[in-house]
Each structure stands twice: as C-alpha cells, then as structure tokens.
Amino acid sequence: MRGGRLIGLHLGLVAVLFALNFVLPAYSHGTVARVMVLATYAMGYNILFGYTGLLSLGHAMFFAAGMYGLAMPMTHLGLGAGPALLTGIGSAAVLSLGVGLLALRTRGVAFMIVTLMFSQAAWLTILLAGRWTRGDEGVVIPQADRMLLGLDLSDPSTRYLAALALFSAVLFGTLWLVRQPIGRVLVAIRENEDRAELLGYDTFRHKLGAVVLSGTVSGAAGAAYGLFFGYAGASFAETHYSIFPLLWVLLGGAGTVIGPFLGTLFMFYLIDLTSGLTPAYMLVAGVALVLLTLFAPQGLAGEIRRRWWRGLP
C-alpha cells in the first residue's frame, strides 16, 4: 500500500517532467534539462551522504572523472558518444573504488578532509595534463560528435528526454536500493555504525559499495553533462562543485529520494531569478540559505515529510 503510493509519487514526478517537455518555454526547457542532470549528481551524492551518513567534500572528482572519461577518448581517440559514455562512467567507478579503499580508513571529519584533498589533487592533475585536457580552458565536444544511438543530443527535445531518462533511471534505482536490505544496512550505518557492525554486517564493504555507487552515479552525471552541453572543463573539478551537491541535498532534504531534485531546482532558480533583479544576488542567496536553515531545517522535502506526509521516502 505504502509502496504503491510511493512509486506513484515518483512516477508522477517523472510524468510531470515528461509532460513539461512539450509545454515549457525554450529557456526553462533547457534549464530543467540541465537541472535534471545536476540533480542526478545530487542523487548520487545523496546515496553516500543522505543514506550512509558519510560526508564527502570531494565528489567533484567523480563528476569530473565521468566528464573527462567521456571527453578525452572522444577528443583524442575519436571514440563515439556511446562507448565514451561507458568509459566516462567506468573512469568514475575505478576512481571511486580507489578513493574509497583509502578514504574509508577514516571516519567523520577526517573522511571529509581526505576526500577534499584527493579531489584537489585530481583538479590539479587535470591542469597538469594540460597538453591533453587544455587545463582550465577545457575542450569543446563538437556538435557533430554528440550522437547517441542515432539521436542528436544537441537537439533541445532529445537532450531533455535523454536527461529525463538518466534522471528517472537513477531516481528509481535509488528508490529501489533504499528499500532493499542493503539500503537498510546503509541507513543502519548512518544511524550507528558500531551497532551495525555488532549486528554482524561488514560495514566496510557496505560503505565501499556506497562510495563506488555514489561516485559512479556522480560520474554518469558528469559524462552526461559533457555530452549534452558539449564542454568539459577543469572548473567542474574545483572544490565548489563538491560543495554544490551537499548544498542541494541539504536544501532539498537529506535522506529523501526527491530532495536532491527539489534542492537543485530551488538553488538554480534562486540564483537565476535574483540575478535578474539585483546585482547583489549572492547576498540574497546567502540570506535565503540562512533563513532556510532557520525555518526549514530538514530541507524542502524534509519539511514536506514533517508537515504533511510522514511516509515520504
């Protein structure tokens, strides 16, 4: 019964987003497509942060691994978009496995710092490899190469639907995951790692799985971003791109499936609309964040859950 309503809610969201493809004006159409890709990144982040309770400050390296894992073979080896999407996702998976093995020796704040520093090193590596990556300037992925399964991803509607496909896959994947036993173990680790361990769960392997899954989804978002919008650049590996998913997730509601999307959408329009009204839009955004922490402490979805619907996943 609850499961039915739950899946209904998320199906409803996907249906609304699908319908929006046909009615949104051009600018918002492009924006929502972008927000769906970024929300996918936030959902990937949420697997680790919201459900497993591990706060990473280095997810930009996974996003960038996906982006460069896609862009480098396309630029230098002439790989097609389809295989390049896989190399992008694969790069993020390998990187997150390596980072996970090292970083998970630490906990809490030390985990934050280790991921932060690995990410910083990854960003500098992109600059160091400027001969291939063109450093900060980045590389453009030519419009002609952005064909996936015969679909032209530079076409607005195709791009929108491709973004929606990625978004829904990860949305339902996450929904499925958190309802599986493994998802419950992750939540148990978040709530009390020592107790989970006492109950006989191999917490390290579960945490490692969460890091890899989270990193891979983030990388998929990065690869998709590069492919959909035709550009890969080092700025996506900088620290603030690690902070963004944290912010989006906290704003939307950590540990909720729908929260990352709400947070990403909210933050985008907060900046976009206020920047049209005043040059001091960062000031407005700052005040809005402070007010949100004061009056909607569990994020937007958390607030919905608290006020109206306790069963929201």
Partner: peptide, 9 residues
C-alpha cells in the same frame, strides 16, 4: 548551510 549562506553574504 547557514555558514555557506554567511560566506555568500
């Protein structure tokens, strides 16, 4: 989140 807001301000 609050101190990120403060940072922006």
């Amino acid at each position: 989140v609050a101190t990120i807001g403060l940072l922006y301000i």
